[in-house]
Design a protein around this nucleic acid. Structure first.
Lengths: 162, 162
DNA sequence: CTCCTTTTCTTGAAGCTTCAAATATTAGGA
DNA sequence: TCCTAATATTTGAAGCTTCAAGAAAAGGAG
């Protein structure tokens, strides 16, 4: 029954700005990628993760951890990417439960083609909007919130034997 | 054909933090509200906007502007809220094109009931994660990005005659 | 007054995400 | 070995968002 600690004006103002950003930024990124490359921002993100690996592949669960998304979401997205011929799935040889998602050549080309336009958009909307110190500070601020949301910050996870 | 300006390590790191936050924060807020009150974060947001008005109502277009969302999205959401009996729609008397969305008594109660738990969550994940100066800085940083995304920052809009 | 344009809002379909449940495989213990 | 639990992933349905198109009213020119 404790009276909740309502937000001060300062807090309310800052929180509203963040809420607005969360509402407007994702669609702004999506629309550019969708229009120019026919990919979702999240789909692009997933393929970019794969493209960074030496063998262009990751276990589904590691992919999910790196993309900060639920296994289910990643599974659906990869299914769509696979339908487009950009990703291929194969069962892991050492653990029959695991699936490996691997970027195809077409998928790699897709990422490479989409990257410049996407980077430009990120620059335009995010990076160029901020001063150097602000950029630094933003990283720390986001990090602080992320630690609250996901205390055991998923990152490297398992050794990836296969 | 200009070579795009790729991201520096600093930029990449900061941007990834922000991207992760955009992926994780909305679901984190949604799940609390959905579980405890059966409302979406956006649905709550819309009802909260209405609840702040003296007459608990807004024109659909103003509601959309304040919620930073497309008319279509607001229309669908309000339709759902209306089905739940939380919002009522009525054609404006002075401009037959406009629709007024008005929070019902049940809707008002819903917002009031949901508010404490939601505020607590926002505190937990966002506000309590930051120092005072960081909070201030976050507001400014978000504001800077928002001005890039939506240069003519929608806010007060029209006079609301009715 | 009529026609045309603009504004405001809604609609339906398609796509994406979530949730709960199902499947398949490995691991651990009696 | 067999049984149970834990792990890794998928699936289908329900709900939400977007997109493109549509309807209705207002404003303005002729």
């Amino acid at each position: 029954m404790d009276e909740p600690r309502w937000l001060t004006d300062e807090e309310q103002k800052a929180w509203r700005q963040l809420a607005m950003l969360m509402t407007l930024l994702p669609p702004a990124l999506d629309s550019q990628l969708q229009r120019d490359s026919g990919v979702t921002h999240f789909g692009y993100w997933v393929m970019a993760m794969l493209s960074e690996r030496p063998d262009r592949s990751l276990r589904m669960s590691d992919l999910a951890a790196r993309a900060s998304a639920s296994p289910s979401r990643v599974s659906h997205v990869v299914a769509r990417l696979e339908k487009n011929g950009w990703v291929r799935r194969a069962r892991s040889s050492c653990d029959g439960r695991s699936n490996l998602a691997e970027l195809t050549d077409a998928g790699y080309r897709k990422v490479v083609d989409a990257a410049p336009g996407h980077v430009e958009r990120v620059r335009d909307l995010v990076l160029d909007a901020l001063t150097g110190p602000q950029l630094q500070e933003m990283g720390e601020i986001c990090g602080a919130m992320l630690r609250r949301i996901d205390p055991d910050g998923r990152k490297g996870t398992r050794p990836l034997t296969d």
